[in-house]
Design a protein around this nucleic acid. Structure first.
Lengths: 337, 337
DNA sequence: CTGAAAGCGCTTACAG
DNA sequence: CTGAAAGCGCTTACAG
C-alpha cells in the first residue's frame, strides 16, 4: 500500500500539506490537483489505523450484542449500521458470547480498538467494563433494557404496558383461561410477565401457575411448552407468547397436535411481523418498532459524539411503545347479547 | 487509558520487555508478575490499533455483504463471526449499500483498516477493488456466488441442481402447470432459473412465459407476483418460489385470496427452515445449510491466514448442495392406479 | 532475558 | 498556505 511518503516523493510536498489536504484544510489548488493525481496513480488509500491512533478518535462506534443468533439483535444491528454509516460513523460489531477465544472480554476488545462510543444490549458480564468506560468519559447507549448501575443514555420498549395490552385484548374477547409463554432470564421478559400479572389482577382473573411457562428462548422450547399446555386437564383457551422464537415453536406444536387456531386455542404473539401475516389465519401480535429503536439509539450516540465538551450532561432515557396488530387468531368467546 | 509508558514507570522495565510479555515471549517470572500487577492496578489494556499498525497484521477479517437486511446475509454473518472469533480472529463488518456517506467504497474502508483478509458476498461494484486487493496478496473468500474475474477461494451452493430437484418433485407428483417465482438480478437466482428450465425440458414439459415471474426480492413483491398468478385464466397447479422473502409474500397472497395450500396451489419454497414448519400444512422447501456455508468460508480464510508464505496456491472452490425437505404443501395429482 | 533506538503511517502544534 | 519536528502506542531487530 502506498503511504504519505510515496505521495511526498511524487508531489514534492510535505507530509503536513498532504495531511491537510486529506483533512479538508485549505491547500493551493495546484497542490491539491497534484496530490489527487499522485493518489490515483499510486492507488493511495489512507491508513485509518494510523489516523485514529494519532488523532485519538476513530469515528467508529462499537456495537456490543449478546449474540448474533436472534432476529431481533440482527435487526437492531442492521438499523444501527445504516443510521451510523449514513452519518459517517463506522460500526465495529462484537458479539459477547461466553466462548471468545482468550483475548479478554468484549468490552476490552472494543475499547482496545479505540471506539468513540458503544451502543449495546448489555449482557450481565459486560456491565462492569461498560461502567468503567462510562466513568472514563466514553459515551455508552443502552438498548432494550437498562442495566442497573449503568447510568447512561438508553432506549427501551415499554414492555409492561405492551404485555398488559395483549392480555387486555384477550380478556375483552371473553378469555379467562389465559396462558403465558416466555422466559424469565431477561429484564425485558420479566417486565412482560409483570404486565401480564398486573392486567390479570386488575380484571380479577386468577393467575394459574400451570398456565405460566418460563423456558429457554428457542423454537424447540416453545414447541415443548405448548405441548405441555395442550396436555393440561383444563386447557387454556388462549396463549400469549411473549417472544418470537417461542411463538414459532408454539405454533409448530399446535399444528402438529391438530389443534386449530383460534378454534381450539387463541394466540397472541410478540415481535414477529412478517410471520404473523403469512399464516392462516394471520396472527394477532404485539409489535415493537425495531427500526425506531435502533434509530433512537444511534441518534443518542451521534448527539453525544457531536457535543464534545458537554459530555457530562444528564443521561437521556427514551421509552417507545409497542403496538397491537390485530389478526384472526383470537376467538371471540363473549356470549352473544 | 494506561499505556506501556505507565507500566514502564510502575515496573522499571523497558518497553521491549513489556511488549515481550504481552506477546508471549519469555520473561523472568518476577518481571511477569510485576507487569501483571501494574496492569491490573492501572487497568491497562493493549491498544490494538498501535499493535496492528506497527506489526502490519490485525488478526481481523473484513466481512463485506451487500446489505444487512436479509435473513440470509445475517445468518451468514452470524456463522462467520462465531467461527472466526473462536479462532481468535476479529470481524470487521461492512455493508456495501450505495449510500455510504462519502468516505469511499466499502473495500477501501476495509483495506484502510488493514484487515488481513476479506470474506464477501460481493456486489458488482465491489469486484474491481477486491481484484486489486487480491492481486496485492490479500486473501479473499467469496461466498454464495463467484464473481467473474475474481479468481479466489469460494463456497457456493449448487443452485441449479437444487432448483431442478424442486421441480422434479413437483413433476413426480403429477404437476405440469408449474409456476416459478424469483428475481433475475443475482447469479444465484439465475442459476436456479436455469435449473428449473433444464428440468422442465428434460421432462418435456413446456415452459410458459406467464408462469415465470421475476420480481424484486421483497415480501411485497412476492405478494403481488402471486396475485398475478392467481388471476391467470389457466392457473398453475404448483409454484416453486426460489427465495424466502418472495415465499412469505406469496403465502400471504394465497391466504388473502382464500386459496388453499395445497388444495388450490401446491407450494415449494426455498431457504425458509423455521417458517416452513410453522405453517399449516408444513411447507415443502429446499434448504441450504447456511451454517455449513459460513463455516466453510471461514475455514478457507483461516487456512489462508495460517499458510503465510504459501499464499499463492490455487484457489479452492467448494460446492455444497441443498436438500429437499418434504412437508405437506404439495398435492399429489397422479391418477390413482 | 533485557534495554536503547528506530519506525509503523499518520496528525498536530509551531514557525515561517 | 507550507514545512520541519515531535509524537500517537506499540513492535522489531540488534546489542548486551
Amino acid at each position: 500500500m502506498a503511504t504519505y511518503k510515496d505521495l511526498q516523493h511524487a508531489t514534492g510536498l510535505s507530509l503536513a500539506t498532504i495531511s491537510k489536504y486529506y483533512n479538508g484544510g485549505t491547500v493551493r489548488p495546484e497542490n491539491a490537483r497534484a496530490i489527487e493525481e499522485a493518489a490515483k496513480r499510486l492507488r493511495y488509500r489512507p491508513n485509518e489505523l494510523a489516523r485514529n491512533l494519532r488523532s485519538g478518535r476513530s469515528r467508529t462506534v462499537g456495537v456490543l450484542l449478546p449474540d448474533l443468533t436472534s432476529d431481533f439483535y440482527l435487526s437492531i444491528l442492521s438499523g444501527l449500521e445504516r443510521r451510523l454509516r449514513h452519518n459517517g460513523v463506522s460500526v465495529l460489531i462484537c458479539a459477547d458470547h461466553a466462548d471468545i477465544a482468550g483475548s479478554g472480554d468484549a468490552v476490552s476488545f472494543l475499547s482496545g480498538r479505540m471506539v468513540d462510543g458503544i451502543i449495546t444490549i448489555p449482557t450481565r458480564r459486560a456491565v462492569p467494563g461498560l461502567m468503567e468506560l462510562s466513568e472514563g468519559g466514553t459515551p455508552i447507549v443502552t438498548l432494550d433494557w437498562r442495566a442497573p448501575g449503568l447510568d447512561v443514555d438508553a432506549v427501551v420498549i415499554d414492555n409492561e404496558t405492551a404485555a398488559a395490552t395483549a392480555i387486555q385484548h384477550l380478556i375483552d374477547h371473553g378469555h379467562e383461561r389465559i396462558a403465558y409463554l416466555a422466559g424469565d432470564d431477561t429484564p425485558t421478559l420479566v417486565a412482560r410477565l409483570a404486565g401480564v400479572r398486573m392486567q390479570l389482577q386488575a380484571r380479577r382473573i386468577p393467575a394459574r401457575d400451570e398456565y405460566v411457562i418460563s423456558s429457554p428462548l428457542s423454537v424447540e422450547a416453545g414447541r415443548s411448552a405448548m405441548q405441555r399446555l395442550l396436555l393440561l386437564e383444563e386447557r387454556p383457551t388462549a396463549v400469549f407468547v411473549a417472544m418470537n422464537l417461542l411463538g414459532v415453536g408454539a405454533l409448530t406444536a399446535l399444528n402438529e397436535s391438530g389443534a386449530r387456531v383460534p378454534g381450539d386455542m387463541s394466540f397472541v404473539g410478540f415481535d414477529m411481523p412478517q410471520i404473523a401475516r403469512m399464516t392462516r389465519p394471520a396472527l394477532d401480535t404485539m409489535e415493537q418498532d425495531v427500526d425506531a429503536l435502533a434509530e433512537a439509539a444511534a441518534d443518542l450516540m451521534l448527539a453525544r459524539l457531536g457535543a464534545q465538551g458537554d459530555a457530562g450532561s444528564e443521561p437521556v432515557v427514551r421509552m417507545l411503545s409497542a403496538r397491537y396488530i390485530p389478526g384472526g387468531s383470537v376467538a371471540d368467546l363473549r356470549p352473544p347479547d
